[in-house]
């Protein structure tokens, strides 16, 4: 069953088409990453799914219901978090969460808040004012709020932006844990490609308001068939000449004297390594770079810019 079904969704602000006739489905329990450069339409799409921006045209069905007709019912089963929203600064963590527990009509709110504070490891600071918290602590409070109503769908807009790597990792661990435990559908945007690769089962790539690719991170990474072999040589005289005999010149880059990068198709990787090892050159260091989502992201962004 699809949790989210978007059909021919378009949003136009005056002369700017922010989202241009996109259609996608997200299955129940799926974690989908929304990728794209700034201005691609990711946040606008999310805001339309939340009803805070009205689409110019198209349909949004969430949990099998038309969003335009069942806003309240649908929103009571969803929740949203963004790095860019806050809570009332002069309320404590507990008070902020209690207000939202009431808003979402949570049964036994005190117990629920206590559970979530424990999960987020912030129970000891429940009486601290929101304004006195660090960014990482604030993010955990916002995440606790998103789980108050046991949502079936979570929309997370760059939830780890502005967090240090350690806290970001903690947040991802919590997200994996709650997803595993509750099987909720998650739509996730981030500029951190490694994060998307780690968390998401499927990625939708947006550019200038249009979906240009979608698939699993592995499928997307196959779009870039090249591996890069990075070699640092002990003695580099004649190295370039030696490599030119076996590789196409445009695939060889000398970054600095004795420091080369040779690109090869993934099917040719083993034979390329054989050639390098048999070349008689003394290798000081060697590294193989597989393409990752970041490479795919850069490739798509550049291609679209050129087009």
């Amino acid at each position: 069953m699809n949790s989210i079904e978007v059909t021919h969704l378009t949003k136009q602000f005056k002369n700017v088409v922010a989202v241009n006739d996109i259609s996608f489905q997200i299955k129940q329990g799926e974690i989908v990453g929304f990728l794209g450069p700034n201005g691609a339409g990711k946040t606008t799409t999310m805001h339309m799914l939340l009803g805070i921006i009205t689409p110019t045209s198209g349909d949004i069905h969430i949990l099998g219901k038309d969003f335009a007709k069942h806003r309240g019912e649908i929103l009571s089963q969803m929740n949203f978090s963004s790095a860019y929203i806050q809570f009332m600064s002069q309320l404590t963590i507990w008070e902020n969460l209690f207000v939202f527990a009431k808003l979402y009509h949570v049964q036994n709110p005190k117990k629920k808040i206590a559970e979530l504070l424990d999960m987020m490891e912030i129970s000891d600071m429940k009486n601290k004012l929101f304004s006195k918290l660090s960014s990482g602590q604030k993010t955990r409070v916002v995440l606790a709020k998103t789980l108050l109503n046991d949502p079936r769908i979570l929309l997370l807009d760059e939830p780890t932006a502005s967090l240090d790597p350690d806290i970001a990792d903690k947040v991802r661990t919590i997200l994996r844990h709650i997803h595993k435990e509750r099987g909720m559908t998650i739509l996730y945007t981030s500029h951190n490609m490694a994060e998307i690769e780690e968390l998401c089962e499927r990625v939708i790539f947006l550019h200038k308001g249009t979906i240009i690719h979608q698939g699993t991170p592995q499928e997307l990474m196959k779009i870039i068939p090249h591996y890069a072999i990075e070699i640092v040589l002990e003695n580099h005289s004649n190295a370039m000449e030696t490599f030119k005999k076996s590789f196409n010149e445009k695939n060889i880059k000398e970054l600095s004297p004795g420091h080369f990068v040779i690109t090869t198709e993934h099917t040719q990787l083993t034979s390329a390594l054989h050639v390098i090892m048999a070349s008689g050159l003394t290798i000081k260091d060697i590294d193989i770079h597989k393409p990752d989502l970041e490479d795919v992201f850069i490739k798509f962004s550049r291609e679209e810019k050129q087009s």
């Binding site: 009803g51 949203f80 929203i85 809570f87 009332m88 600064s89 808003l103 979402y104």
Partner: peptide, 18 residues
């Protein structure tokens, strides 16, 4: 205005609150 100043408005309007 207090909700605007606290950037709390979105939290409220993405809930079922009308």
């Amino acid at each position: 205005l207090e909700d605007v100043w606290n950037r709390n408005l979105l939290n409220l309007f993405v809930s079922p609150l009308t």
